[in-house]
Design a protein around this nucleic acid. Structure first.
Lengths: 240, 240
DNA sequence: CGTCCCTTTGAGGGCCTTCAAACTGTGTGG
DNA sequence: CCACACAGTTTGAAGGCCCTCAAAGGGACG
């Protein structure tokens, strides 16, 4: 039950022929159930698969010389990790499951071949890559200019928007399977301070916390506070 | 005297036929001499051109609600701003010259058409985009986990590597046309603190400062301090 | 000689880190 | 059913990094 297929995700960016879609889906992809903390891609290894998250959350992270973890990107259900596909060498980061997760793996060889020969497929991957580039740019702004309180607010607004897009949020409420240490590694903060800020956001009435869930209570005020612009959704079928 | 041509930059990532190269270079591109602070691309405008920096430095920046500037990316000589090419809508950020700069503008229409029809061109842009994605990822690590002193060291090592790649650095010495306020906006720090840290790095003997130039005196120690891995150079002609 | 831009220095305070430890809930084994 | 381990959350106290406001110093240019 692969809810999110590679062809469908690409098709959003650039309409593909049925033949190509079948080719993409059929090509020996397989699905794995991963335990929390299982590695999806290991640094230094040759890249063999393009992963797609079906359920659960995963993270792309890197380590500082002294062993602190920096989470570069969060992978939510529906996300395609296309980065390794185009990299020239083994990746320098690790991709790991943050919760138990279901991930579909597509072998890169047939995909690379398709990109080589089919301009529409190449264009679709190009749009996908551009989309992710834009997402990364939007992470820079909070890291550069916002304070802890606002960083967390920005993250919650972002997660809400992304999860809403795949039907996993309702009425401002969305799953939050990450513990505070993981949030800290994603925001460049410290566990203890994440806790204090969360409590303050709760006391201030901006968010409500339940085990495993967050509810955004005052979306408008938070969005204005942090300059959050709802990220443009991938189009239903776009141009170039 | 366009030192850096679009076709040559793309050709590094994916070998292109001479015909395509001519097509890319010929298509009505033009060159402009921009004064410092002139805008290269304006937010909200439809995207008409792909800029390539020939000389001088430019910046992609965004503003917080209260008007603080966050510099997302620095454009150095030879850099191609391909982002706008694939964006679906007007960009949300501003691109501005940080020094007087020479920039070549390529109209997007013919390029988009080429991408649509030529898989090799699309693949080349895909690799270019992936390369820039990786660069952005490498900016996240210092922002997430390093302190001011290390952030600046990381930036200097990065700039040195990039300028060295286009022959603008020698013996650890490279141009530094940015003032301290601009460095601050790039690192998420404050002007005054940038100044204090720079002085300290100078006193510590890690760097030397002259007007308009920086010299890295102890590359090895700094690189180890911040976990800097020399960025993989774009290959001479790569795979997928 | 005055203006402008940038750099530099000082003083004070706040955000966030750091170290430490208690508290809570959950699963496991006796 | 209780004891215990374990993971995660929460709270306290102290201190440092960095911000903020303010202003002086230096060089380029008219």
């Amino acid at each position: 039950m692969a809810t999110f297929s590679l062809s469908e995700r690409l098709d959003r960016f650039c309409a593909l022929s049925d033949e190509v879609k079948e080719h993409l889906n059929g090509s020996n992809s397989f699905q794995r159930l991963l335990e929390s903390r299982a590695e999806v891609l290991r640094p230094g290894e040759p890249i063999a698969y393009v992963p797609i998250v079906q359920s659960g959350w995963i993270a792309t992270y890197d380590l500082t010389p002294d062993g602190r973890r920096a989470i570069l990107e969060l992978g939510l259900p529906g996300d395609v990790l296309s980065g390794p596909l185009h990299a020239r060498e083994p990746i320098g980061y690790t991709v790991q499951a943050l919760t138990s997760a279901t991930v579909t793996f597509h072998p890169v060889e047939p995909i690379v071949e398709l990109i080589r020969t089919n301009a529409r497929v190449a264009a679709a991957f190009l749009r996908l890559e551009t989309y992710q580039h834009e997402r990364l740019q939007e992470r820079l702004l909070p890291l550069l200019q916002l304070r802890s309180y606002e960083k967390i607010a920005h993250l919650f607004l972002d997660l809400h928007a992304r999860l809403d897009a795949v039907g996993m949020a309702a009425n401002g409420r969305f799953p939050m399977p990450l513990n505070q240490a993981t949030l800290a590694d994603h925001l460049g903060m410290h566990e203890v301070h994440v806790n204090r800020v969360l409590r303050r956001m709760d006391d201030d009435g901006y968010v409500a916390r339940e085990k495993g869930y967050i509810t955004i209570l005052d979306h408008a005020t938070l969005a204005e506070m942090v300059g959050f612009r709802g990220r443009p959704r991938p189009p239903r079928h776009g141009g170039a």
